[in-house]
Simulated assay, not measured.
Amino acid sequence: MLACLLLAQLLVAFIGRSVGPLGVLIGEDLELSKSQIGMLPAALFLGQAIASIPVGFVVDQTGSKTLLLLISLCVGSSFILMTFSHQFGFVLFLVVIGGLGYGAMHPVTNRGIIHWFQRTQRGFAMGIKQTGITTGSALAGLVLLPLAAMYGWRQVVAAACLLLIMGGVVSYTFYHDSIKETNQDKKNLASFYGSMKHMVRNKPLMLVSISAMGLSGSQLCLVTYIVIYCYEYLDISLFLSGVLLVISEICGSIGRIVWGIISDRLFKGKRVIILMIISGIAGVTSMILAFLPPSTTFGVMIPITMVFGFAISGFNAIWMNVASEVVDTTFSGLSSGFSITLGSLGVITLPPLFGFIVDFFGSFTAGWIMIVGVMILVFMLLLLLLLEIKTRAAY
C-alpha cells in the first residue's frame, strides 16, 4: 500500500514540480521575467490551495483508491494541454488546473498513511511517502531538464505526462483502502461546515499551518531559483546548475526519512522541535547564499545545497504528521487539506515576491535575505506552537 501511495505521489510531483527546473527554458521560450517565472510554481500551488480542503473532506468519506486515478488524469491531461500553448496566461491557467490534482494528492495519500500505520510508525512511513515529492522534483531536474534542453520542453513534458497517467492506472489497480476507512460513517455537507469550524478553532493546527506558509514558500524559492541563481549569477553551466537542484532534492528526500526517524525514535513523536531545527538550518544556509561571491565554484555549492535541501525540502513529512495528529484521526484527511491550503499561500506568494525582489534590486542577495527573515518568523511561531502543545498536555 505504501508503494502505491509513493508511486502516485512521485509521478504527480515529477510533472507538477517540473515547472521549477524547467522554468528557465519555459521563460526563454515565452520571454518571461524572473517574477513571471516565479508565477509558474505559484500557479501550481494556487491550484493546490483550492483543491486541498474539499478533497480532504471527500477522501475522509470515500477513501483514497479512486482518487489516485482521477488525480493522475487531472495533472497529466492539463500539462499535456499546456505543451500546446504559447500564451503565458493560458499556460498559467493550465498549471492551476494541474495544481488541483497536485494538491489533491497530498490529503489523499496522507489519509492512506494515517490509516495504514500506527503513530510510532507514521513518521518513517510519511517520510517515505513524502520522498515522492522531492524525488519527483529531482528527477525533473535530472531527466526532464537535460532532455528538454536537447529536444524542447514541450515534447518532453508531453511524454512524461503519459508516464504519469500509466502510473495512476497501476496505483489504482493495486491499492485498496483499509478497513478503518471503509467502515466509518459518512458525513453530509452540514457536517463539513462543522468540521471546518473545528479546524479553524484548533490553535495548534493553525500555528503549524501558518508556519508551513514560510517553510513551503521558501522551499519553492530554492527549487525555482537555484538553477537560475547558479546559471546567471555564479556562471555555472545549465547542466551543472540542474545537478545542484537534483542534489538539493535528493537530500530533501533523505531529510524527509531521516527527520521522520529522528522524530519517531529520539523524540517519541514530538515533532515540533524538529521543525524548529529545520527552520534554523534553512535560515543559516540562506544567509550564506546571500553573500556568496560570483566566483563561487560548483564544488563549493554542493555542500551548501545539500544542507539547504536536507532542511527546507525535508520538513514536509513532519509538517503532514503534525497537521494530522493535532486532530482526531477521523479528520486526518480534512486537517491535511486545511493545513496544505494555508501552507500553499506561502508558495503562491513567496516565489513571485522573491523574483520581484531580485528584479528590483538586480541581485539575488536581497532575495536570500528575505528567506532568512521568513525563517526567523517561522521559528517564533513554532515556539508558540510548542508552548501551546505543552499547555494542552498539562491539562
Rank of each mutant, 00 (worst) to 15 (best):
C4T: 13
L5C: 05
L5K: 01
A8N: 04
Q9S: 08
L11N: 07
S18N: 11
V19Y: 00
I26M: 12
G27H: 09
L30H: 11
L32Y: 09
S33F: 07
S33V: 03
L40N: 05
L46G: 00
A49F: 13
S52G: 12
V55H: 05
T62L: 11
G63D: 02
L68D: 00
L68N: 01
V75G: 04
L81M: 13
L81Q: 08
Q87K: 12
Q87I: 13
Q87R: 12
L94C: 01
L94Q: 01
H106A: 15
P107L: 04
P107H: 00
R111T: 14
R111V: 07
I114M: 13
Q121I: 01
F124H: 09
M126D: 00
I128G: 03
L139Y: 05
A140W: 04
G141R: 12
P146A: 02
A149G: 08
M150Y: 15
G152F: 00
G152E: 00
Q155N: 11
V157T: 06
A159L: 10
A159G: 12
L163S: 10
G168M: 00
G168L: 00
S171I: 00
T173S: 06
F174V: 04
D177F: 02
D177Y: 05
S178M: 08
K180Q: 07
K180W: 12
T182H: 09
T182G: 05
S191F: 12
Y193R: 13
H198Q: 15
K203I: 13
P204I: 07
L205E: 07
L207E: 13
L207K: 06
V208R: 03
V208D: 04
S209A: 08
I210K: 07
G214Q: 00
S216I: 13
S218I: 02
S218P: 03
S218N: 13
L220M: 11
I226L: 15
Y229F: 15
C230V: 15
C230A: 15
D235G: 12
I236R: 09
L238S: 01
I247M: 08
I247F: 06
C251M: 14
I254T: 13
G255P: 01
G255Q: 00
I257A: 08
I261H: 09
D264P: 06
L266I: 15
K268D: 11
K270D: 15
K270L: 06
L275Y: 00
L275H: 03
I277N: 07
I278C: 06
I278G: 03
S279E: 02
I281V: 14
G283A: 10
V284K: 03
V284C: 04
T285E: 12
S286E: 03
S286L: 04
M287G: 09
I288G: 01
A290W: 06
P294I: 09
S295F: 10
S295W: 09
T296N: 04
P303E: 01
F308Y: 14
S313P: 07
N321V: 11
E325W: 01
D328L: 09
T330R: 08
F331I: 04
I348G: 00
T349F: 09
T349G: 11
T349N: 11
P352W: 05
F354L: 01
G355Q: 06
T365H: 13
A366T: 11
A366P: 08
I369V: 15
M370E: 02
G373D: 08
V374R: 04
F379W: 13
M380R: 14
L381M: 10
E388F: 10
K390E: 14
A393E: 15
